[in-house]
């Protein structure tokens, strides 16, 4: 970090202290972005790195909504919801992407376990939604066929 950036950052931080106290909390959370898990290139290793184990249980209570065929791999809509109780987090893994972990959603007692986003997929792959409820991880997997990849340039 050079001097200029340091000054800029410290000013930003000081500014947030005054303006929006809630940012201080967010700042802590930002530091928790799990770089290691996002860098892993193998699905099983990625799962272990997120949960500390890879004991997954397929469950019909996890609802994964994804297209069977995605014409454009750059925008694949994915929705995950569940009827399970005490959901701590929802993770979406795309097996054949360069890094399988695509995104993670950490819920609170206020959240309803239902999320949606749009992902990039390089090629046809299994998409797995994983829901952590209590000590267990429940999953639902679906194959999405990609006709035009979303990672090329």
């Amino acid at each position: 970090m050079n001097r200029r950036n340091f000054i800029k950052n410290s000013m930003l931080f000081a500014g947030s202290l005054v303006a929006i106290p809630s940012l201080i909390v967010s700042k802590k959370a930002y530091a928790a972005w799990p770089k290691k898990s996002f860098d892993i290139k193998d699905l099983t290793e990625s799962v272990s790195s997120v949960y500390g184990h890879s004991n997954l249980e397929e469950s019909s209570k996890v609802k994964l909504k994804a297209p069977e065929i995605a014409e454009n791999g750059a925008i694949v809509p994915i929705n995950v919801s569940t009827t399970l109780d005490n959901v701590e987090s929802i993770m979406i893994f795309v097996e054949n992407n360069p890094q399988p972990l695509s995104s993670g959603y950490k819920l609170t007692s206020l959240s309803e376990p239902s999320i949606g986003t749009r992902l990039k997929m390089g090629k046809t792959s299994n998409v797995m939604a994983a829901v952590k409820s209590g000590d267990k991880v429940y999953t639902s997997t679906q194959e999405v066929k990609v006709t035009i990849g979303g990672c090329g340039g």
């Binding site: 996002f38 925008i75 992407n97 695509s102 995104s103 993670g104 986003t117 992902l119």
Partner: peptide
């Protein structure tokens, strides 16, 4: 929410 580069 944690996002990786795979998000559109």
């Amino acid at each position: 929410i944690y996002w990786g580069p795979a998000v559109s």
